[in-house]
Design a protein around this nucleic acid. Structure first.
Lengths: 221, 221
DNA sequence: ACATAAATCCACCTTTTGGCTTATATAATT
DNA sequence: AATTATATAAGCCAAAAGGTGGATTTATGT
């Protein structure tokens, strides 16, 4: 089989260089281009016309999802293999709907990548086994014990929680929302119950875990 | 100069393989071992006796900080270069106190890594320029507006604050630190005064703003 | 030796939370 | 019409946090 022409898209130069070294020396693929984010990748795409792209999800400027979407609009027959980390689980469904042909973990090895490239080039899909196992495990654990999440909270409760995250107490929140402090207390009690938190500081941690507050906004002060 | 014997510690196999390929083909170092987390690394350390370790921060089981600490206890003359990402800023000062010899960004290239390895092997420290710029930018913006910062807190106060950030109350922290709840209360009062926070939830926000807690650790639950 | 900072602990008191229960009005659903 | 979810509000009591003012011991530095 013909060695595929590929582009590597990842924001870490050393990772791209290492991967290129591997793919070249192991005679797996021709690395005809590199990009450090989605914008660079899209700019290169029609010019280089690669057979296949190895695409990282977590990148600045334009991430892997948007990149894949745009790339497939421009070149519908492009093969895309996503390089993913465990924590990216949220994206799998979106991506597979887009037409991405493979997912492979960064924790897998070059031999698995080689197989993935071969399968995808033959028109098959490839999903890292370890990754499939993870997703299945996650689905089952999500069904059994339904972890508390923001989806259980009412709009008003979220509003109260966000004000708690500003460091306000019941009375202050009450003034801000034009309701009684008792009501705020009710909402807070319901929040504690729904989230399973043991105290108000815990609610802040919950909000952060569930990305209800923008940590970057806090960070500047 | 003698090519150093090194160990690569990173949780992504493909990254290790790529880096090994690069370091070997470019004739920079002998990769005598690999580990995918801190535990594996520590287990290998005394057996392989490397000159230098390339250590990732963000790993499961035992992270880079703890690993560096343990490794330096076992082998005080070990050279350590930390592989870091921008978002790991919180760790720099802890790490440099431990005796880590270099920091390099994953977004730098093999040529910079080569220079870092050479410098560190000669007993010098190496800090990625881009990284220094980042830190300095951060420091200056912290110094101009003299807001309360972690530098005002004593070690014990920081310890208490970190436990507050786990959602524990005075009594629980007292048990954990083997001191009286009254003492914890004193520390918390001092924390409130020094930070200018109005309540305990505020302390959590302060800790996050000042990057005293690892948000990623919270993220798993 | 002395001053200073840090860590430890206690008492007293007020305010705020936390847990439990109840209740009403409204809107959406069945 | 009856049920359910939501938002609102209140009462009670216990627990925790917040504000003051102390006190002792242990390092640390000059």
């Amino acid at each position: 089989m013909k060695k595929p022409d590929i582009i590597i898209v990842d924001d870490h130069l050393i990772f791209r260089q290492g991967l290129k070294s591997l793919l070249t020396n192991e005679n797996i693929a021709n690395v005809i281009g590199e990009a450090s984010d989605g914008n660079e990748f899209i700019a290169l795409l029609l010019h280089l016309k690669p057979d296949l792209v190895l695409l990282d999800i977590d990148m600045p400027h334009m991430n892997g999802i948007e990149s894949a979407q745009k790339a497939l609009e421009l070149m519908p027959d492009l093969k895309i293999i996503i390089f993913t980390m465990f924590r990216d689980e949220e994206y799998y469904y979106e991506m597979s709907n887009l037409g991405v042909m493979g997912f492979i973990l960064k924790s897998s090895g070059i031999s698995e990548l080689e197989r993935a490239i071969q399968e995808v080039m033959m028109g098959e899909c490839y999903f890292s086994n370890e990754l499939l196992r993870r997703v299945i495990k996650n689905l089952s654990s999500k069904n059994t014990r339904k972890k508390p999440g923001i989806e259980d909270l009412t709009a008003r409760e979220k509003e109260v929680l966000q004000n708690i995250c500003l460091g306000l107490n019941d009375k202050e929140i009450a003034e801000k929302l034009y309701i009684s402090p008792k009501t705020v207390k009710s909402h807070r009690s319901n929040l504690l119950e729904k989230t399973g938190c043991r105290n108000t500081p815990g609610l802040i941690l919950f909000a952060i875990k569930n990305k209800m507050v923008n940590i970057k906004l806090l960070a500047d002060g």
